[in-house]
Computed example of a mutant assay.
Amino acid sequence: MKAAIIGTTGYGGAELMRILHSHPIFTIHSVHTTREELPVSNEYPHLYNIINQTLEPINPNKIAEECDIVFLATPTGVSGKLVLDFLDKNIQIVDLSGDLRLRNTEDYQKWYKKEPVSKEVVQSFVYGLSEWNKDQIASSNKVSNPGCYPTATLLGLAPLVQENLISPSSIIVDAKSGISGAGRSPSRSTMLAEMNENFKIYKVNEHQHIPEIEQQLSDWNPEMQPITFSTHLLPTNRGIMATIYVSLKESLSTKNIHNLYMDKYSNHPFVRIRPLGTYPSIKEVNGSNYCDIGLHVDERTGRLTIISVIDNLMKGAAGQAVQNANIMNGFDEVTGLQFLPLYP
């Protein structure tokens, strides 16, 4: 199947090229940008003599005629406009931005500070949390890929929320991301002198991924209440760790919770529930599409701590996008994604 990638000058687009270059079914037919038309290797020298395409202008008619699927790895505010040019064409769409995730377009305007696309367009896209929306993804040709923080958080919370085991107002998420989560555009907060040997909080109670998380939690359990969600930048290139605290409705042991998670994720190859007494770190999933989850109940307080880690560019972006493309087309979801994590 022929794939087009739009937005290849960002980190998400670069990861899509890395994955699709080795995919046994999808091939990279074309790569597109709104910037200067240059060889891809001019933007990413590590691809020299590997991916030899030249960055092309965006021509939706030509892309739809020549390709089976298009991945939009463009910034928020750009994808929503671009996608309108593909809706009436015979081509599958996977969007990696935040433009098509929130069904309430007023929430999008409030949290993203941009003009939303219409509700009809948003509702035509399936929310692509691969492990939990597989049937909807398989029957659609338009998928909105989840954000990186929501992926780690929602995979960590799903079994408890679905089984109504936690106090609806008790969720506190303490999340940390590597610098690549801030994108490739330079800013003071991502400068070496600012972040090396540093650790900083940002967007306190204002991160745009909050309504996305709350939307899915409410879909699973209408009793859920607003969450407390904090985000921090780590002095690392990749990785997300979401440390989640919840109050249990009844007395349950760590083993009880562990058994629940092992059962819920038994048929999901990219979610690894760590053995009792062990907890994941971001280095153990980097470069892979895995989400690793560790669990511990504090029986003194009745609170459960969930540690969920992913690579923000893989399971949090390009990896999950390809996983969704596999599901859409009836392929085994692990196809082309069986990378071992990079270590050390």
Results as ranks from 00 to 15, higher is better:
residue 183 G to H: 10
residue 294 G to P: 03
residue 226 P to M: 09
residue 319 G to Y: 05
residue 108 Y to E: 02
residue 67 C to F: 03
residue 83 V to D: 02
residue 169 S to T: 11
residue 289 N to M: 03
residue 21 H to D: 08
residue 164 N to D: 12
residue 261 Y to G: 01
residue 165 L to Q: 05
residue 262 M to E: 15
residue 172 I to N: 09
residue 236 T to D: 11
residue 158 A to R: 11
residue 141 N to T: 14
residue 63 I to L: 03
residue 138 A to L: 04
residue 225 Q to V: 01
residue 76 T to D: 02
residue 239 G to P: 06
residue 145 N to W: 02
residue 51 I to V: 14
residue 322 V to R: 03
residue 225 Q to D: 11
residue 109 Q to S: 15
residue 222 P to M: 04
residue 69 I to N: 02
residue 82 L to F: 04
residue 41 S to H: 14
residue 211 P to N: 05
residue 303 R to M: 14
residue 186 P to N: 03
residue 209 H to A: 09
residue 298 D to K: 07
residue 5 I to N: 01
residue 295 L to D: 00
residue 264 K to Y: 15
residue 335 T to C: 09
residue 22 S to Y: 10
residue 330 G to Y: 00
residue 292 D to F: 14
residue 336 G to L: 00
residue 39 P to N: 09
residue 137 I to K: 05
residue 263 D to T: 14
residue 183 G to N: 09
residue 196 N to T: 13
residue 222 P to Q: 08
residue 284 E to K: 07
residue 308 S to N: 08
residue 256 N to L: 06
residue 139 S to W: 01
residue 141 N to A: 02
residue 160 L to M: 09
residue 244 I to N: 05
residue 61 N to T: 14
residue 108 Y to A: 07
residue 25 I to Q: 11
residue 156 G to F: 04
residue 169 S to P: 00
residue 44 Y to G: 00
residue 299 E to L: 11
residue 173 V to E: 02
residue 18 R to A: 07
residue 280 P to D: 07
residue 58 I to C: 06
residue 193 A to W: 11
residue 336 G to H: 06
residue 216 Q to N: 04
residue 161 V to K: 00
residue 30 S to L: 01
residue 329 N to I: 01
residue 208 Q to G: 04
residue 22 S to L: 12
residue 20 L to M: 04
residue 300 R to S: 13
residue 20 L to E: 04
residue 231 T to R: 08
residue 9 T to H: 06
residue 96 L to E: 08
residue 207 H to G: 05
residue 46 H to Y: 14
residue 157 L to A: 03
residue 242 A to R: 02
residue 312 N to K: 01
residue 340 L to C: 08
residue 174 D to P: 00
residue 25 I to Y: 11
residue 32 H to K: 06
residue 18 R to C: 00
residue 172 I to E: 12
residue 218 S to R: 12
residue 172 I to Y: 12
residue 172 I to M: 09
residue 81 K to L: 13
residue 67 C to K: 03
residue 274 R to G: 00
residue 282 I to R: 10
residue 75 P to Y: 09
residue 305 T to Q: 14
residue 169 S to L: 01
residue 136 Q to H: 11
residue 265 Y to I: 04
residue 191 M to E: 15
residue 194 E to D: 12
residue 237 N to K: 13
residue 252 L to P: 03
residue 165 L to A: 03
residue 174 D to N: 15
residue 220 W to N: 07
residue 342 L to T: 14
residue 13 G to V: 07
residue 172 I to F: 11
residue 239 G to E: 04
residue 273 I to Y: 08
residue 69 I to T: 06
residue 337 L to H: 09
residue 4 A to F: 05
